[in-house]
Amino acid sequence: MYNLIGAGLIVIGGGIGLGQIGGKAMEGIARQPEAAGKIQTAMIIIGALLEGLAFGALILGK
């Protein structure tokens, strides 16, 4: 029961984080379309780091 609540919290946190990363990257690309490639790469790396954290928490919590 509690680990399900924890899993929900992790997903909420991860969702907020991914939303921030994606949104800011979109803004950045809109401001500077010529830097789109670099921004996308950085976005994927940060997204992957966040995902690793969230998955780690989910697996350790299970």
């Binding site: 992957a48 780091l49 690793g52 954290l53 998955f55 780690g56 697996i59």
Partner: peptide, 14 residues
């Protein structure tokens, strides 16, 4: 390396 292994494992499992 721990986050590396967890990320790959969890993504594919999911």
């Amino acid at each position: 390396p721990f986050s590396l292994l967890i990320r790959l494992f969890a993504n594919i499992t999911a």
